Simulated scan of single mutants.
Amino acid sequence: MGVELELHTGRPILDWRRSRKTFLRGSYAYGDELTGLLLLMADSGPGVLPHVDPYGDTTLDEQQAAAALREIPEMMTRCTSDAQVAAVQDLRSLLRACTETPGSYLWFVGD
């Protein structure tokens, strides 16, 4: 299953059923690939993505999402398959949407 991504209009309540009130869109297709890449990023030093816990829940606000967008090229260099590239492109799309939606949060729903 791996980590899933959900974009919310505001800070989500970290409870799947109750969080539906703020839900905008989600990504559930690349969980395993994204988990593997996040684990690889954990050794890359400072930044936002190295601190995302693929096994727990992590939320990013608009400013954190903007910082994470700058880390996408580094994550892309770690891809070894088309599925991983698709996972990073999907993440980039949701990070951009978060930065463009005032008050929004991107929720990394850990496995």
Rank of each mutant, 00 (worst) to 15 (best):
L24N: 01
R17M: 07
P12N: 08
L40V: 03
T99C: 14
D15K: 12
V48I: 15
S19N: 08
T9F: 04
T80E: 09
R92M: 09
E4R: 14
G56C: 04
L91C: 05
D57Y: 07
D111K: 12
G110Y: 02
D111R: 13
L40I: 01
G10W: 11
A66M: 03
R20H: 08
W16V: 02
D61G: 06
H8S: 13
G26A: 09
L94Q: 06
R70C: 07
L106Y: 00
D82H: 07
P54L: 06
D53K: 10
Q64R: 13
T99H: 03
E71F: 09
A86Y: 04
D43W: 10
G47T: 09
D90I: 00
E4N: 11
V3P: 06
R78P: 01
W107T: 00
M1E: 11
L95K: 06
G36Q: 02
S19F: 00
R70T: 13
A97D: 14
Y55N: 11
T59H: 02
T80F: 07
R78Y: 07
P102G: 04
R78T: 02
L7Y: 08
T101C: 08
G47N: 08
Q64A: 15
V52R: 09
E71Q: 14
E62P: 00
G56M: 01
G45P: 09
M41C: 10
P46R: 14
K21P: 00
L49W: 04
M41W: 04
M1N: 10
V88T: 06
V48R: 11
L7N: 08
G47K: 06
Y30E: 09
P102S: 02
